[in-house]
Amino acid sequence: MKRRHLMAAITAMAAGTAPAIAAGPLQLRVWRDPNCGCCTAWQEHMLGAGFQVEDNLVTSLAPTRRILGIPSDLASCHAGLVNGYALEGHVPAEAVLHLLSTRPAGVRGLAVPAMPIGSPGMEVPGTPDDTYDVIAFGNGGGRGVFMRFRGNQRV
């Protein structure tokens, strides 16, 4: 994650335009299959961005997704929870920090459906990165494009 994005989040908090995220590391709870290597790589991406990760190994993600309110058609390979927001799949840390600093009305969480090549944890050397959307979803079923990335870079 780029330092300027973290600084923007801190500046917004100091100016009172965003709720305080948390003093110190952000707490990220993750639920994943114990045999998933890309989930571990995504957790490393989040750790590198300053998140503190609680890793929960489960045999089925379906109950967790129901509790978090993640739409089934947005499913990927792991689910998470940070500051009351649900996460699904390989959501870049930059998108999560933007969500936490802006707290848009009606948004329940973010998802990156499927497993795009080049998204955090899905890097494949020698293979071009996919361009993909980070989808914001709401409690009432609404959704829309929150951010767009190519690999780990916002476009």
Rank of each mutant, 00 (worst) to 15 (best):
S119M: 03
V145I: 14
H98A: 13
R143V: 15
P120F: 00
R108P: 03
G138C: 09
C39A: 09
L99M: 14
M46Y: 01
M122C: 07
Q153L: 11
V124A: 09
A14V: 05
G16H: 06
A86C: 10
Q52Y: 00
G80N: 07
A8M: 04
V82H: 08
L6Q: 10
V96H: 11
D129H: 10
L99Q: 11
L87W: 07
R148S: 14
V107A: 03
V53H: 06
T40Q: 03
I21M: 01
P104N: 02
L26M: 02
L87G: 13
N56V: 08
G141R: 10
R154L: 15
M46D: 02
I21N: 00
N139G: 11
S60V: 01
P25V: 02
G121Q: 05
I67S: 10
E44A: 05
K2M: 10
A111W: 15
E44I: 00
P34I: 06
M13V: 12
F137D: 12
D33C: 03
L68S: 11
A14N: 10
L100S: 04
V124Y: 03
C39H: 04
R4W: 15
P113C: 11
R154P: 09
P125S: 13
G24D: 02
D73K: 15
A22V: 01
G121E: 04
V145R: 15
P128I: 10
P116R: 03
I135P: 15
R4S: 13
L110I: 09
G121C: 06
M122T: 07
G69E: 12
V30F: 03
